[in-house]
Write a protein that binds this DNA or RNA. Structure first.
Lengths: 135, 135
DNA sequence: TTCAATGCAAAAGTTTTGCACCTCT
DNA sequence: AGAGGTGCAAAACTTTTGCATTGAA
């Protein structure tokens, strides 16, 4: 993708096929994959890519706020190309991790800043339960 | 502690010195320690205790809701003996993880249940930022 | 041409497992 | 006595690192 290369360049990153592949994969999925899953998904089209490169790439992306790391209690981290602050649901039945867009968090931030004098930079809200499909 | 033994027994667990030690340690700290930290803290008083036992014990406790596992993005999990749903703050300056008791989460749960038909069982909210002391 | 990125293999770190022995009940 | 817990060492997993080679600018 032309656009992806552009975005990487703007972030000051050298444009490589591996980085384009990882970023595009994350843009085109809602699965919140982990490093291993990304690696396996790209294997067919990028047979030379190594898992170490996936990790290094995700690390760069994370620092440049191109992706968000997600920790839902599994042994490995998941990654999300939607970087704005938003909650996630984790279905304990099917295991799916989904994005959620609800209001009301800024009020909690404000409360925490005022009552506890804790300055909030970012937030991670994970809701565990059962999704509509599994109920 | 007499009470601790009682609690373990009520949960159907065999009472052993190791289990009492781990549970008491967690009850008496606000540090949200990880397995390694618990192990080292108990070393002086329980020199024979192994790290594997700490892990196994925490696993039992977690399943019986005696403790809560906490994942703030570090390589290892932290543990909290306060098992009711409550948010945590993580200071990016001093690294401290602290408990937080704010209202307003139940409204968000309700919203999620009504709008997205996701049945919420539990929730984990982590606020990253700077604590009052570090500002 | 130059500097950074890649890929491989090895290492590091956390957590789990298998099994002989011990200890609670 | 018997079921279950402990401790040790080894294994399993995820993630990181070092380094020679490759590739983007």
């Amino acid at each position: 993708m032309q656009e992806t290369a552009q975005i990487l360049r703007e972030k000051g990153l050298k444009v490589t096929p591996q980085r384009i592949a990882v970023y595009n994969m994350l843009l085109n999925t809602k699965e919140h994959p982990n490093a291993e899953t990304i690696y396996k998904a790209l294997q067919p089209t990028n047979p030379t890519m190594s898992l170490a490169t996936v990790y290094k790439t995700l690390d760069y992306f994370k620092q440049l706020h191109l992706v968000q790391e997600l920790n839902v209690g599994e042994p490995s981290s998941r990654y999300d190309a939607i970087v704005c602050c938003h909650p996630h649901t984790v279905c304990s039945c099917c295991g799916k991790v989904e994005d959620l867009f609800v209001e009301g968090m800024t009020e909690i931030h404000k409360k925490v800043e005022e009552e506890f004098h804790f300055h909030v930079d970012s937030e991670q809200l994970i809701l565990y339960g059962t999704c509509a499909r599994c109920q």
